[in-house]
Design a binder for these strands. Structure first.
Length: 259
DNA sequence: ATAGGGTTAG
């Protein structure tokens, strides 16, 4: 295995003596590689090297750079890179913005991440599914569950196609946050829209509804989940039926058993 | 064209 220093020296030799000119793509592979193995200073050297060779950074290079910086805890540097990019006349795209939004969310700066989403809109850059899912994770982690919920609730009306990940992020956030009623409500919303929770989440959710006294909802949820092809763990199945019996809803219990 | 961003849950 050749060390990173030697690999770079190899490139230096090619460029210096053999007249081989690497393009931005080659540089990008190197920048990403050095960031991946934690050699941030080496990544910097590559970019300095690019500049001395008169090779300007492109959007890919900036995205790679920003991702490396924010994962290295250097969020401010990543934000500076965005400004530099704009100064150079490059138009940041959804990947560049999403990279920064993710970094801000991870640093607990969700409010600023939302600000960047606004900036995207103003700049005419369309946020995609990755952008929204990153932001949803950030909102949930910060306990801003109602905002996450209302985003998922309303985005499809605005023409944004969310995926099962979007729904699972929010469902999970609500469940972990102890928002039992909202969780049940949200489950029915996502099922109605054709998105199913993960197997483990479904079981956990049914258990939580039962132990939280929401027996009626747990029975309804069970029926709907089963209709979507879900097969609960045996103990969860029993739990819901027993709870329904205890509530003296014998008829409902029989209906469940029929299912 | 190629190269750049993520989550779910386990």
């Amino acid at each position: 295995m050749v060390g990173s220093r030697n690999r770079f020296n190899c490139l230096r030799k090619w460029v210096g003596k053999d007249g081989i000119v690497p393009d931005e793509l080659t540089y990008n592979v190197l920048i990403k590689g050095f960031f991946m193995v934690g050699k941030v200073d080496r990544a910097w050297t590559i970019m300095e090297f690019m500049r001395t060779k008169g090779c300007r950074l492109n959007g890919f290079n900036y995205a790679t750079l920003m991702n490396g910086l924010s994962r290295d805890g250097k969020m401010n540097k990543a934000e500076e890179a965005l400004e530099e990019m704009k100064r150079c006349g490059l138009k940041p795209d959804a990947v560049v913005y999403t990279t920064l939004i993710n970094g801000l969310c991870r640093s607990g700066r969700t409010e600023e991440a939302i600000g960047l989403l606004e900036e995207m809109k103003v700049a005419g850059c369309k946020a995609d599914i990755v952008t929204f899912n990153v932001l949803l994770v950030g909102l949930c982690k910060e306990g801003r569950l109602m905002e996450a919920l209302s985003m998922v609730e309303s985005l499809p009306r605005a023409g944004v196609q969310l995926d099962k990940g979007s729904y699972r992020i929010v469902l999970n956030g609500l469940l972990q946050g102890g928002e039992l009623e909202k969780t049940a409500e949200f489950l029915f919303l996502m099922l109605a829209r054709g998105f199913v929770p993960h197997y483990a989440t479904s079981n956990e959710l049914l258990e939580s509804l039962c132990s939280g006294g929401m027996v009626r909802e747990s029975a309804d949820a069970l029926v709907e989940l089963v209709e979507m092809g879900f097969m609960p763990k045996l103990e969860v199945w029993c739990l819901v039926i027993e709870a329904t019996c205890r509530e003296k809803k014998l008829l409902s219990a029989f209906e469940l058993l029929d299912e």
